[in-house]
Amino acid sequence: MTISIADRSLVDWAVFSQTRAELGANFVRILGYFREDGVKSLDAIETAMRANNAAGLVLPAHTLKGESRQFGAEPLAEIAETIETIARDCVERHETPEAALQHVVKLRPQFNATLAMLEQEANPLVVRRPGGFGRRASA
């Protein structure tokens, strides 16, 4: 997968680098937890949305928001936060969360694109220097 300039905006790379430095050898394992937890959160959000269950949206959206921010995935975190806010408002007003639907629809593709980028960047086998494997970088 090639990263375009537009795709690179899915992640705040300064936050990503800081998290990577802070977690050190644990980084890849924690990123794996983000993948697993993220899929569970997405499934829970989609299930709650299909059931028009505002309360069921709150916790998985909140969890996805926080975990996304840890890795610098701010656009993903913003969508999750919007879903969480709408859901909380709906719970308070005893309403169904139809207003969250357009955001829920965007969530999985955003998560998948962001995760692919994070995993590509975290892969120790990815060549990050010009020239590639077996080629001398031009000066």
Rank of each mutant, 00 (worst) to 15 (best):
D7M: 12
R8A: 11
R8K: 11
L10V: 08
A14E: 15
A14H: 07
F16P: 00
F16A: 05
S17W: 00
A25Y: 09
N26F: 11
N26L: 12
R29M: 13
R29G: 04
G32P: 09
R35M: 02
E36T: 13
V39K: 11
V39Q: 11
L42E: 01
I45Y: 02
E46D: 13
T47I: 10
A48W: 02
M49K: 07
A55F: 04
A61W: 06
H62Y: 12
H62Q: 12
E74R: 09
L76M: 13
L76H: 03
A77C: 10
A80S: 15
E81I: 01
R88D: 09
D89I: 01
D89P: 02
D89H: 10
D89M: 05
D89K: 10
E92W: 00
E92P: 03
A99L: 12
A99E: 11
A100N: 03
L101Q: 13
Q102I: 11
V105P: 00
P109I: 11
P109E: 09
Q110I: 03
N112T: 13
T114L: 07
T114I: 12
A116K: 06
A116C: 01
L118E: 01
Q120E: 13
E121P: 01
N123Q: 08
N123Y: 03
N123V: 02
V127W: 13
G131F: 08
G131C: 08
G131R: 09
G132F: 07
R135C: 07
